[in-house]
């Protein structure tokens, strides 16, 4: 018996009221599988992630969430699907969007990951504290727990937000350009963490324009540029032809070489 997928998209499109969006999405993510969402800036990678969270309306196709906890995939609605999804999805935003002056410590940020399970009336208990410590150990920041969040380096903040996502014990983890601006040490730590998560059965969908990263941690690649261009195992999809179509005329990094993909019009 095959394990049902955590996330299944069939012909899905997510469109902002203004008209911009991403369409033609066909995707299954199983527990323990990592999928790289690859495309140039403006390709709709973030739009897809926000669509899964219910922050951008779905305008075509179906999206199903479930499976990971034994439940059958259930269709979720348009706006407000964040509620249907709550308890399942964790989202790692780009830490640069957060106010560094906000008076909050690293462990308090990570504790936010537990709030969903607590609801309105319960306050964090001993089990939540243990989950926070465990999440901080997983990302290698346990000794900085009481440090103000704004005093951490960019890479440490990113790992802190990842710890918050882990503390919520998600079935599906969405990461939006998590490697932007990271130094090598933080990058390695993040790669290790994603590998650990996969072994624990967490499904991971990571948007990036870093092809190297896709090779390092992902099983499957989805190429998007306004619409889904290709998907499948990393080695089959990351071919020169596919990448050329996706990144037409842009610089990409492939196997530690930077190459400028020529546009089609010159041929």
């Amino acid at each position: 018996m095959t394990v049902p997928p955590v996330l299944r998209l069939r012909g899905a499109a997510f469109t902002y009221p203004g008209g911009a969006g991403v369409s033609g999405l066909q995707l299954d993510i199983s527990p323990g599988e990592a999928v790289a969402l690859i495309g140039p800036n403006g390709a709709g990678k973030s739009t897809l992630l926000k669509g899964i969270l219910g922050l951008v309306p779905k305008t075509a196709g179906t999206i199903e969430l479930g499976g990971a906890r034994g439940a059958a995939p259930a269709p979720i609605g348009r706006i407000g699907s964040a509620h249907a999804a709550s308890g399942m999805i964790a989202f790692l935003p780009q830490s640069a969007e957060l106010d560094p002056d906000f008076p909050i410590s690293l462990e308090q940020v990570v504790m936010q990951g537990r709030y969903r399970g607590l609801g309105l009336f319960r306050w964090p208990g001993r089990a939540d504290g243990a989950a926070v410590r465990h999440a901080l150990e997983t990302v290698g920041l346990a000794e900085l727990a009481r440090r103000p969040f704004g005093e951490l380096s960019g890479g440490q903040r990113q790992r802190g937000l990842l710890a918050r996502a882990l503390a919520s014990e998600p079935a599906l983890l969405l990461l939006d350009e998590p490697f932007n601006g990271l130094d090598q040490a933080n990058r390695d730590a993040l790669v290790d963490t994603i590998r650990t998560l996969k072994t624990r059965g967490v499904a991971v969908l990571v948007s990036t324009h870093d092809l190297e990263l896709a090779r390092l941690v992902c099983d499957t690649v989805v190429l998007v540029n306004g619409t889904q261009l290709a998907s499948g195992p990393v080695d089959e999809v990351l071919t020169l032809g596919n990448v050329q179509e996706c990144f037409e005329g842009l610089e990409v990094e492939l196997d530690e070489h930077t190459l400028v993909v020529p546009g089609h019009e010159g041929h």
Binding site: L55, S86, F91, L98, Q112, R116, F121
Partner: peptide, 21 residues
């Protein structure tokens, strides 16, 4: 009653939405 969630939203509006608030 909503203090935890209000602080989450104040700190990270998108994360709060993603958490189902």
């Amino acid at each position: 009653v909503t203090l935890k969630q209000q602080l989450y939203r104040a700190f990270d509006a998108k994360g709060s939405r993603a958490a189902g608030d």
